[in-house]
Simulated assay, not measured.
Amino acid sequence: MSELISRSNNTINFIERKASSSAFRKLYAEGMGLVEETAAYLDGEGRAEAKKLGRVAATLYAAESMRLTTRLMQIASWLLLQRALNSGEMNREQMMVEKKKIRLDTSSAKLTAAGWNELPEAFRLLVNRSLRLQAYVCRLDQDLFGEPQETDRAPVRNDNPVGSQIELLRTAFAAR
């Protein structure tokens, strides 16, 4: 409790309290649940649905799948670090060193990208849920630690259609 009170002005730090409360446990469960749900979808129903897609949509699906899994792994890493800090397994300095390896800025294709509307609805919902969760974790991270990572930027969709296509091509050719 004494950690929650700032010595300089004797105020309660509600953000730190939230990060170690039942609200965090709920966030942790939501994040890890989304990781599991996404993995099950991509290995099962998503794989079958992807085979039915046209060439453009299939390429977009492959690129978005990589972004989705990257985004969720980064969120899971952040949640695990915060849990380790809360439980005393790591001190703040150790956690901050590890936190620097996490990127909470994985973007997604624009909703108007070629092939987006052809993607399976269940997949699009997973992408949208992951983006909302990433945005929430980014805000919480900023509130807790105050200093944005060098790469921190709002985890929103790419509003540049050319940039979106270039990123799609870069992702597709990088996988080969």
Rank of each mutant, 00 (worst) to 15 (best):
A109T: 07
E98D: 05
L85I: 04
E89T: 06
F14H: 13
N13M: 10
R67E: 12
L169W: 09
D152Q: 12
Q74T: 00
S108R: 12
G163E: 04
L4E: 15
E93G: 02
A58N: 13
L85Q: 00
F145V: 01
T112C: 01
V137C: 06
Y61V: 01
F14S: 14
L133K: 13
M90F: 06
V162K: 10
D43R: 14
L133D: 09
A174C: 03
L111E: 14
G146Q: 06
A135L: 04
L80Q: 11
R124L: 04
P161Y: 06
S108T: 15
R132T: 15
L125H: 12
E64S: 14
A63M: 01
L60T: 05
R129L: 10
L126F: 11
R7L: 14
L140C: 05
K101P: 03
Q165D: 12
L81F: 08
R176A: 12
G54W: 06
L42H: 04
V35F: 11
I12Q: 11
R17L: 15
I75T: 10
R103S: 08
R7Y: 10
S6H: 08
E16R: 15
R92P: 01
L126D: 08
R47C: 06
Q74F: 00
R17Q: 15
A29Y: 08
L126P: 07
R129C: 06
V156H: 07
R25W: 09
Q142S: 05
A135D: 13
A113L: 08
V156D: 09
E16V: 08
K99A: 01
Q134I: 11
A175N: 13
I15A: 09
L68I: 07
S8D: 08
R55H: 13
E49K: 11
E118H: 05
T106C: 04
D152P: 03
V137G: 11
R25E: 09
E167D: 12
R83C: 01
N9E: 10
D43M: 11
